[in-house]
């Protein structure tokens, strides 16, 4: 189990892995995530399930290289086995035919957005998708998104692909133009904060999918807690999706940085140790 059957770099630091996990492939729904562990010393890493294939018994995850564990994940190859994969975790996205759905994804947040775009489209919605990245090399999944979107808008900070500007500018353009019944926003916390502020101005019900720090992913530890409407919620069992207008994104950003210094130090040490091996 948990063998990697396909691996592809979508950009320099973003990898797509297709992993054998037949039970999860069958039971997962849009919005669910998994937790994986590479080896005995590894962390439990939460990753959204970007896609699944029931016949082949596989799931797709997309990970960005940011620290020791994700670096190790990026160096795994086809045929390697992950030590542990558990899921599907979290509540599934509430999918219904509501009319027009605006889906906005930033950076690697485009990966968890994809299954939602797909499910929203299959449920009969008009789906308009806005994906954003710093430059054209960092735009991922545009073909997949195009396939399930009535319209795909690409935004880049430098204008090297699609339009120049932020995700919120792309969203505004759509909202100004036509009636949007619901919005889904996924990406870095800062992006979700401003995307939520954008839709709030127009009273558009919006969900955000939160990528907080987790350990067990089953409600046991509370590392993932966030304030939603003034109430503490556990992202792993009551999320990962919440009313974006009620999430305290500032608190979430602070909490995401809880181990930042330690992890940065650990990562540079790890990279140094790799160099030593190479010498």
């Amino acid at each position: 189990m948990f063998r990697i059957v396909e691996k592809e770099f979508l950009s320099e630091n973003v990898v797509r892995l297709i992993i054998e996990a037949p039970y999860i492939a069958k039971s997962r729904k849009a919005g669910n995530f998994i937790i994986l562990r590479i080896d005995k010393k590894g962390e439990r890493i939460p990753l959204t399930i970007a896609d699944a294939n029931i016949e082949e018994g596989t799931i797709t995850v997309i990970a960005q290289r940011v620290g020791v564990s994700s670096h190790k994940l990026c160096t795994m190859n086809v045929g390697d086995r992950l030590l542990d994969v558990v899921g599907p975790l979290g509540k599934a996205t509430d999918i219904a035919n509501v009319g027009t759905v605006l889906c906005a994804g930033g950076g690697v947040g485009v990966a968890p957005l994809f299954p939602i775009v797909q499910a929203m489209k299959l449920a009969g919605n008009r789906v308009i998708t806005v994906i954003a990245a710093r430059n054209k090399d960092l735009v991922i999944l545009q073909d997949e998104m195009r396939k399930y979107s009535d319209e795909l808008i690409i935004m880049t900070d430098d204008g090297s692909l699609g339009k120049k500007g932020l995700v919120t500018q792309g969203m505004e353009e759509v909202i100004q133009r036509e009636k949007v019944n619901e919005a889904v926003v996924i990406g870095p916390a800062i992006m979700m904060k401003f995307a939520a502020l954008t839709t709030e101005k127009y009273d558009i019900p919006t969900v955000a999918s939160l990528n907080t720090i987790m350990v067990d992913g089953t409600g046991m530890c509370g590392a993932c807690r966030v304030s939603v409407g003034g109430k503490t919620e556990f992202v792993c069992v009551n999320g990962p999706e919440f009313d974006a207008h009620k999430v305290d994104f500032d608190e979430m950003m602070t909490r995401l940085n809880a181990y930042k210094n330690r992890e940065a130090a650990g990562y540079s040490e790890y990279l140094k140790s790799l160099e030593l091996v190479l010498i």
């Binding site: 046991m220 530890c221 509370g222 590392a223 608190e251 909490r255 940085n257 809880a258």
Partner: peptide
């Protein structure tokens, strides 16, 4: 919910 505050379970 400040950092450095965690459950005993965590």
């Amino acid at each position: 919910n400040f950092n450095g505050i965690q459950s005993a379970n965590e």
